[in-house]
């Protein structure tokens, strides 16, 4: 089930000046934070994925993702995120078909005793605010492991591009099943923090899979493809399947 409803969609807030996360067009008398800079409702950050293929934004950021409710992975500090720790954490199988599934909105998986649901969203921001995804799902927000999947559709091969990622905190990203980039350590999300080696986005569907781990603090990520000059690649579409 999608967490959004038509009525909620009707009251979606819009991004204001200076990247204020949520300036709602309507005021809510019951919630003094609604429509203010302090608003943290889910609709400030996400809207349901439409049926139409999406495009990267003007800076090439991919905003359409299917996100799994966070897996509990307690860590009191982000300083434990060494390369070896992350390779073990990210290559552990938490649920069936973890490295191959292209999940549908509402699909569920079982991780130990947790039953977790996939949610398909279009982010209203260039980045994906995992923390707010989790807080609005009323799940754990700290000590968590997120999985994200999206599909990039190309009309022809696009060679010599790099997957460019920023994440808070550490993360690993795969393109068509191959590891593309690892962001280790206690990281803040920074645009173009780490890039993959040169890759080819092949004609047809390309599956991007990411895992983001976080102890305390905020969690989010941003992903785009850039060309040899560092300019954003935008000549593809994005779908959930």
């Amino acid at each position: 089930m999608n967490v959004f409803t038509k009525s909620i969609i009707a009251s979606l807030c819009v991004a204001g000046l200076c990247s204020v996360p949520c300036i709602a067009s309507d005021k809510n008398d019951d919630d003094p934070r609604a429509g203010t800079i302090s608003d943290t409702r889910l609709e400030c950050y996400f809207e349901p994925s439409s049926q139409e293929p999406a495009s990267p934004d003007s800076e090439g950021f991919i905003r359409r993702w299917t996100l799994l409710e966070p897996i509990s992975k307690p860590n009191r500090s982000n300083t434990v995120f060494t390369d070896s720790y992350l390779r073990e954490a990210f290559n552990t199988e938490y649920f069936p078909d973890q490295f191959t599934v292209v999940p549908k909105d509402g699909q569920k998986v079982k991780v130990d005793k947790q039953r977790l649901r996939w949610h398909s969203f279009d982010s209203k921001l260039y980045n994906i605010k995992l923390f707010r995804f989790a807080s609005n799902m009323e799940t754990d927000v700290y000590g968590v492991l997120f999985w994200a999947v999206t599909v990039v559709n190309c009309e022809e091969d696009i060679p010599n591009v790099r997957m460019s990622v920023g994440s808070n905190s550490a993360s690993m990203w795969w393109l068509n099943g191959e590891e593309a980039v690892l962001l280790s350590g206690d990281r803040r999300m920074v645009q173009d923090d780490c890039c993959s080696k040169r890759l080819t986005l092949k004609k047809g569907k390309n599956i991007i899979r990411g895992a983001v781990i976080n102890g305390p603090g905020m969690s989010d990520f941003c992903v785009r493809f850039v060309d040899e000059s560092g300019n954003p690649v935008t000549n593809y579409t994005i779908t959930n399947q």
Binding site: N127, G166, M189, V190, Q191, D193
Partner: peptide, 18 residues
């Protein structure tokens, strides 16, 4: 004073630049 505050490669500090 209200920004945007960009770094030496043009990244906004709202996107982690610095």
């Amino acid at each position: 004073v209200t920004g945007p505050y960009l770094d030496n490669v043009g990244r906004d500090m709202l996107k982690g630049g610095g």
